[in-house]
Protein backbone atom coordinates (compact mmCIF):
# COMPACT_ATOMS: atom_id res chain seq x y z
CA UNK A 1 0.00 0.00 0.00
CA UNK A 2 3.04 2.17 0.27
CA UNK A 3 3.25 2.66 -3.44
CA UNK A 4 -0.44 2.73 -4.23
CA UNK A 5 -2.27 5.93 -4.97
CA UNK A 6 -3.29 7.51 -1.66
CA UNK A 7 -6.94 7.77 -2.63
CA UNK A 8 -7.24 4.07 -3.37
CA UNK A 9 -5.23 3.03 -0.35
CA UNK A 10 -7.31 5.18 1.94
CA UNK A 11 -10.44 3.62 0.55
CA UNK A 12 -9.03 0.12 0.98
CA UNK A 13 -7.85 0.89 4.49
CA UNK A 14 -11.28 2.20 5.33
CA UNK A 15 -12.85 -0.93 3.90
CA UNK A 16 -10.88 -3.23 6.10
CA UNK A 17 -10.07 -1.31 9.20
CA UNK A 18 -13.49 0.20 9.65
CA UNK A 19 -16.30 -2.24 10.12
CA UNK A 20 -18.18 -2.78 6.93
CA UNK A 21 -21.52 -1.17 6.24
CA UNK A 22 -24.58 -2.81 7.74
CA UNK A 23 -26.80 -4.37 5.09
CA UNK A 24 -29.82 -5.09 7.31
CA UNK A 25 -30.46 -6.17 10.87
CA UNK A 26 -31.99 -9.11 12.72
CA UNK A 27 -33.20 -8.76 16.35
CA UNK A 28 -31.42 -5.42 16.49
CA UNK A 29 -28.11 -6.99 15.45
CA UNK A 30 -26.77 -5.39 12.30
CA UNK A 31 -25.78 -7.78 9.55
CA UNK A 32 -22.80 -6.62 7.51
CA UNK A 33 -21.18 -8.21 4.50
CA UNK A 34 -18.69 -10.16 6.64
CA UNK A 35 -21.63 -11.81 8.38
CA UNK A 36 -23.33 -12.71 5.13
CA UNK A 37 -20.04 -14.10 3.83
CA UNK A 38 -19.74 -16.19 6.96
CA UNK A 39 -23.23 -17.49 6.45
CA UNK A 40 -22.44 -18.40 2.88
CA UNK A 41 -19.29 -20.22 3.94
CA UNK A 42 -21.16 -22.01 6.71
CA UNK A 43 -23.86 -23.12 4.31
CA UNK A 44 -21.19 -24.47 1.94
CA UNK A 45 -19.30 -26.26 4.71
CA UNK A 46 -22.45 -27.79 6.18
CA UNK A 47 -23.70 -28.79 2.73
CA UNK A 48 -20.43 -30.53 1.92
CA UNK A 49 -20.30 -32.34 5.24
CA UNK A 50 -23.94 -33.36 4.92
CA UNK A 51 -23.39 -34.73 1.43
CA UNK A 52 -20.24 -36.52 2.54
CA UNK A 53 -21.77 -38.15 5.59
CA UNK A 54 -25.21 -38.86 4.13
CA UNK A 55 -24.09 -42.00 2.34
CA UNK A 56 -21.04 -42.79 4.36
CA UNK A 57 -19.29 -46.04 3.78
CA UNK A 58 -16.53 -47.83 5.59
CA UNK A 59 -14.93 -48.32 2.21
CA UNK A 60 -14.75 -44.71 1.05
CA UNK A 61 -16.39 -44.52 -2.36
CA UNK A 62 -17.04 -40.82 -2.81
CA UNK A 63 -14.18 -38.38 -3.26
CA UNK A 64 -15.91 -35.93 -0.94
CA UNK A 65 -15.90 -38.42 1.90
CA UNK A 66 -12.26 -39.22 1.20
CA UNK A 67 -11.35 -35.55 1.23
CA UNK A 68 -13.20 -34.80 4.47
CA UNK A 69 -11.67 -37.89 6.08
CA UNK A 70 -8.27 -36.60 5.06
CA UNK A 71 -8.99 -33.13 6.46
CA UNK A 72 -10.34 -34.38 9.78
CA UNK A 73 -7.56 -36.94 10.24
CA UNK A 74 -4.93 -34.30 9.47
CA UNK A 75 -6.43 -31.95 12.05
CA UNK A 76 -6.59 -34.77 14.59
CA UNK A 77 -2.96 -35.63 13.89
CA UNK A 78 -2.02 -32.00 14.50
CA UNK A 79 -3.95 -31.78 17.76
CA UNK A 80 -2.81 -35.09 19.23
CA UNK A 81 0.84 -34.25 20.00
CA UNK A 82 -0.14 -30.95 21.66
CA UNK A 83 -2.93 -32.49 23.70
CA UNK A 84 -0.66 -35.44 24.41
CA UNK A 85 -3.41 -37.97 23.95
CA UNK A 86 -5.79 -38.85 21.17
CA UNK A 87 -8.72 -39.21 23.56
CA UNK A 88 -8.18 -35.69 24.87
CA UNK A 89 -7.72 -34.40 21.35
CA UNK A 90 -11.05 -35.94 20.37
CA UNK A 91 -12.79 -34.32 23.33
CA UNK A 92 -11.89 -30.80 22.16
CA UNK A 93 -11.92 -31.75 18.49
CA UNK A 94 -15.29 -30.20 17.50
CA UNK A 95 -14.33 -26.74 18.73
CA UNK A 96 -10.79 -26.72 17.38
CA UNK A 97 -11.56 -28.35 14.03
CA UNK A 98 -14.39 -25.86 13.51
CA UNK A 99 -11.94 -23.02 14.14
CA UNK A 100 -9.59 -24.44 11.55
CA UNK A 101 -12.24 -25.05 8.93
CA UNK A 102 -14.08 -21.75 9.37
CA UNK A 103 -10.91 -19.64 9.50
CA UNK A 104 -9.45 -21.41 6.49
CA UNK A 105 -12.65 -20.87 4.52
CA UNK A 106 -12.82 -17.24 5.67
CA UNK A 107 -9.21 -16.61 4.66
CA UNK A 108 -9.78 -18.08 1.22
CA UNK A 109 -13.01 -16.10 0.79
CA UNK A 110 -10.77 -13.04 0.64
CA UNK A 111 -9.12 -14.44 -2.48
CA UNK A 112 -12.40 -14.58 -4.38
CA UNK A 113 -12.72 -11.96 -7.09
CA UNK A 114 -14.58 -8.93 -5.87
CA UNK A 115 -14.12 -9.76 -2.21
CA UNK A 116 -14.22 -6.56 -0.17
CA UNK A 117 -15.81 -4.61 -3.01
CA UNK A 118 -19.05 -6.41 -3.73
CA UNK A 119 -21.68 -5.94 -1.07
CA UNK A 120 -22.18 -9.09 0.97
CA UNK A 121 -18.80 -10.55 0.12
CA UNK A 122 -15.84 -9.76 2.34
CA UNK A 123 -13.32 -12.07 4.00
CA UNK A 124 -14.59 -12.36 7.58
CA UNK A 125 -11.10 -12.68 9.03
CA UNK A 126 -10.04 -9.41 7.42
CA UNK A 127 -11.99 -7.48 10.06
CA UNK A 128 -10.83 -7.25 13.63
CA UNK A 129 -14.40 -7.73 14.89
CA UNK A 130 -14.67 -11.29 13.63
CA UNK A 131 -11.19 -12.37 14.72
CA UNK A 132 -11.84 -10.79 18.10
CA UNK A 133 -15.07 -12.80 18.29
CA UNK A 134 -13.11 -15.99 17.63
CA UNK A 135 -10.48 -15.01 20.19
CA UNK A 136 -13.21 -14.35 22.77
CA UNK A 137 -14.55 -17.86 22.14
CA UNK A 138 -11.04 -19.25 22.69
CA UNK A 139 -10.67 -17.16 25.86
CA UNK A 140 -13.91 -18.40 27.41
CA UNK A 141 -13.45 -21.96 26.19
CA UNK A 142 -10.00 -22.11 27.77
CA UNK A 143 -11.24 -21.00 31.20
CA UNK A 144 -14.42 -23.07 30.93
CA UNK A 145 -12.55 -26.26 30.17
CA UNK A 146 -9.91 -25.44 32.78
CA UNK A 147 -12.56 -24.97 35.46
CA UNK A 148 -14.46 -28.03 34.27
CA UNK A 149 -11.51 -30.38 34.43
CA UNK A 150 -9.67 -29.01 37.46
CA UNK A 151 -12.43 -27.40 39.50
CA UNK A 152 -11.43 -24.63 41.87
CA UNK A 153 -7.80 -25.75 41.69
CA UNK A 154 -7.71 -24.18 38.26
CA UNK A 155 -7.14 -20.75 39.78
CA UNK A 156 -3.95 -21.95 41.37
CA UNK A 157 -2.08 -21.49 38.14
CA UNK A 158 -2.54 -17.73 38.41
CA UNK A 159 -0.22 -17.62 41.43
CA UNK A 160 2.33 -19.96 40.02
CA UNK A 161 5.28 -20.07 40.06
CA UNK A 162 5.26 -17.11 42.51
CA UNK A 163 2.26 -15.30 44.05
CA UNK A 164 3.62 -11.87 43.17
CA UNK A 165 3.33 -12.80 39.48
CA UNK A 166 -0.47 -12.71 39.78
CA UNK A 167 -0.91 -9.41 37.89
CA UNK A 168 1.42 -10.56 35.14
CA UNK A 169 -0.46 -13.85 34.82
CA UNK A 170 -3.78 -12.02 34.57
CA UNK A 171 -2.39 -9.64 31.98
CA UNK A 172 -1.08 -12.63 30.05
CA UNK A 173 -4.53 -14.17 30.02
CA UNK A 174 -5.90 -11.01 28.37
CA UNK A 175 -2.98 -10.51 26.03
CA UNK A 176 -3.53 -13.96 24.56
CA UNK A 177 -6.87 -13.26 22.85
CA UNK A 178 -5.60 -9.83 21.86
CA UNK A 179 -2.54 -11.24 20.12
CA UNK A 180 -4.57 -14.11 18.72
CA UNK A 181 -7.09 -11.79 17.06
CA UNK A 182 -4.56 -9.16 16.00
CA UNK A 183 -2.28 -11.76 14.42
CA UNK A 184 -5.02 -13.30 12.35
CA UNK A 185 -6.55 -9.98 11.38
CA UNK A 186 -3.20 -8.35 10.62
CA UNK A 187 -2.01 -11.18 8.43
CA UNK A 188 -5.18 -11.53 6.39
CA UNK A 189 -5.86 -7.83 6.13
CA UNK A 190 -2.23 -6.98 5.35
CA UNK A 191 -2.13 -9.61 2.66
CA UNK A 192 -5.34 -8.28 1.15
CA UNK A 193 -3.99 -4.74 1.24
CA UNK A 194 -0.82 -5.76 -0.56
CA UNK A 195 -2.83 -7.59 -3.23
CA UNK A 196 -5.10 -4.55 -3.60
CA UNK A 197 -2.11 -2.23 -3.93
CA UNK A 198 -0.42 -4.44 -6.51
CA UNK A 199 -3.71 -4.66 -8.34
CA UNK A 200 -3.97 -0.88 -8.37
CA UNK A 201 -0.41 -0.68 -9.71
CA UNK A 202 -0.61 -3.28 -12.52
CA UNK A 203 -3.87 -5.19 -12.57
CA UNK A 204 -2.80 -7.97 -14.92
CA UNK A 205 -0.16 -10.39 -13.61
CA UNK A 206 1.52 -8.62 -10.72
CA UNK A 207 -0.89 -9.65 -7.93
CA UNK A 208 -0.74 -13.37 -8.83
CA UNK A 209 2.40 -14.27 -6.83
CA UNK A 210 1.01 -12.41 -3.85
CA UNK A 211 -2.29 -14.24 -4.20
CA UNK A 212 -0.46 -17.57 -4.32
CA UNK A 213 1.34 -16.52 -1.15
CA UNK A 214 -2.09 -15.63 0.20
CA UNK A 215 -3.19 -19.24 -0.28
CA UNK A 216 -0.20 -20.38 1.75
CA UNK A 217 -0.63 -17.71 4.44
CA UNK A 218 -4.34 -18.43 4.75
CA UNK A 219 -3.54 -22.04 5.54
CA UNK A 220 -0.70 -21.16 7.89
CA UNK A 221 -2.76 -18.60 9.79
CA UNK A 222 -5.69 -20.99 10.24
CA UNK A 223 -3.18 -23.59 11.37
CA UNK A 224 -1.51 -21.21 13.81
CA UNK A 225 -4.78 -20.01 15.30
CA UNK A 226 -5.93 -23.59 15.84
CA UNK A 227 -2.56 -24.63 17.25
CA UNK A 228 -2.51 -21.75 19.73
CA UNK A 229 -6.10 -22.39 20.81
CA UNK A 230 -5.17 -26.04 21.31
CA UNK A 231 -2.08 -25.06 23.25
CA UNK A 232 -4.06 -22.76 25.56
CA UNK A 233 -6.74 -25.36 26.22
CA UNK A 234 -4.13 -28.06 26.74
CA UNK A 235 -2.24 -25.86 29.20
CA UNK A 236 -5.43 -25.01 31.08
CA UNK A 237 -6.55 -28.62 31.35
CA UNK A 238 -3.18 -30.30 31.93
CA UNK A 239 -3.08 -32.19 35.21
CA UNK A 240 0.42 -31.15 36.22
CA UNK A 241 1.42 -27.60 35.67
Amino acid sequence: MFFATPAYAAEAAEHGAEHSQALFSIFGLQVSSVVTTMWGLMVLIILFSYLATKRMNKVPESRLQNFLEFVLESILELLTPIMGDEKLAKRYFPLLASFFILILASNYAGLLPGAGHLPGLQAPTSTLSVTAGFAVVVFFATHYYGLKTKGIKYFKHFVQPFPFLLPLNIIEEFVRPLSLSLRLYGNVFGEEMVVASLFALIPLFLPIPMMLLGILFGLVQAFVFTMLATLYISMATAEQH
Binding site: M1, A10, A13, E14, A17, R183, Y185, G186, G190, M227
Partner: peptide, 21 residues
Protein backbone atom coordinates in the same frame (compact mmCIF):
# COMPACT_ATOMS: atom_id res chain seq x y z
CA UNK B 1 3.71 -17.23 14.45
CA UNK B 2 4.72 -15.72 17.78
CA UNK B 3 7.50 -13.72 16.12
CA UNK B 4 5.25 -12.80 13.23
CA UNK B 5 2.82 -11.28 15.71
CA UNK B 6 5.38 -8.60 16.60
CA UNK B 7 5.63 -7.47 13.00
CA UNK B 8 1.87 -7.56 12.73
CA UNK B 9 1.61 -5.20 15.70
CA UNK B 10 3.91 -2.80 13.88
CA UNK B 11 1.83 -3.21 10.73
CA UNK B 12 -1.35 -2.41 12.65
CA UNK B 13 0.24 0.69 14.10
CA UNK B 14 1.19 1.65 10.58
CA UNK B 15 -2.42 1.20 9.49
CA UNK B 16 -3.61 3.28 12.44
CA UNK B 17 -1.23 6.06 11.55
CA UNK B 18 -2.14 5.77 7.89
CA UNK B 19 -5.76 6.40 8.68
CA UNK B 20 -4.78 9.72 10.26
CA UNK B 21 -3.03 11.16 7.27
Amino acid sequence: AFMEALTIYGLLIAFLLYGKI
